[in-house]
Design a protein around this nucleic acid. Structure first.
Lengths: 155, 155
DNA sequence: CAAGATTGAAATATCAATCTTG
DNA sequence: CAAGATTGATATTTCAATCTTG
């Protein structure tokens, strides 16, 4: 019974520590080598895999788990730097798209190998196959259990 | 070898997603039910386990992975609310301690069961024994590989 | 000068309110 | 009125500069 509680609690502690150690490290490294904040990388990566390299702001906010206004401002800053641009939506004129620009595409192409190498170096290389599979199966349950309003419903 | 890459990459994606979903949820819940931000809970928890319920600001910043000025301001806000207080250091008069107040101790005692229950509800209960052990072994390697002097614990 | 802590300026996030369109 | 997006006010964090003490 104690053996049930303890490993899970330890897993939680390490989960928090790992993200607290990893994210600043990866963020700083990408920023220094490519001049791209990790949060911008996330936006560019989403756009790259989207049809026509564009995506509704609404959708972007949801899949990046960012509030509406948070996304508005992030896109503002990225647009100032020419990495994305906004595009009105013809079918629903309330909406808007964020579109990848050529400069944004180039920046991402530069960033991808650097970032993936860093993720491998600091995270993936420490996971055995079994450990990776166990993490996938466990965290899938955790993420799927999150109420939809946590994922979608932020002002 | 290719089978090594994919589960690990998926584990990374889920790792990011899980923390993005979990932390706001736990934070909001603790804030609503106890009126205590999760970041303050972390400070109180650190102080509770320290000798005499006090700790050098320097040490706190390191184990909470917070910058010097970030900690200064967090302690400012908590001191305003009477949860901690500052205390000069006799041996090295440049330094200062953060000390748990009775009010801070009470708030933490209220918060602990609520927060632990929430962590169980949203995270721990989804981990089988094997999955928890795999996560512990994997994340231990990840955390140990990071710059070593900064690691302490949360909850 | 170096180390511990604080302060000012800037970055980035959120909530609430607002504007525009359906 | 509801939905998509933006704006204003506020909160928290970091970096660089500063103050104090060793």
């Amino acid at each position: 019974m104690n053996d049930n509680v303890e490993p899970a609690r330890q897993a939680w502690r390490l989960f928090l520590q790992a993200q607290a150690v990893l994210l600043p490290q990866l963020s700083e490294q990408l920023e220094k080598e490519i001049g791209l904040p990790l949060t911008w990388y996330d936006v560019l990566a989403q756009l790259k895999t989207a049809p026509c390299h564009k995506r509704r702001l609404q959708d972007l906010g949801q899949c990046l788990l960012l509030s509406k206004s948070g996304l508005t401002r992030r896109i503002d800053r990225m647009e100032e730097r020419g990495l994305v641009k906004r595009e009105g939506c013809a079918e629903d004129r309330r909406g808007a798209f964020a579109v990848l620009t050529p400069a944004g595409h180039d920046a991402l192409e530069q960033a991808i190998p650097v970032h993936l190498a860093a993720v491998h170096e600091h995270f993936m290389k420490y996971l055995s196959d079994d450990e990776a599979n166990a993490m996938v199966s466990a965290l899938t349950k955790v993420v799927d259990a999150a109420p939809p309003d946590v994922i979608c419903g932020r002002s």
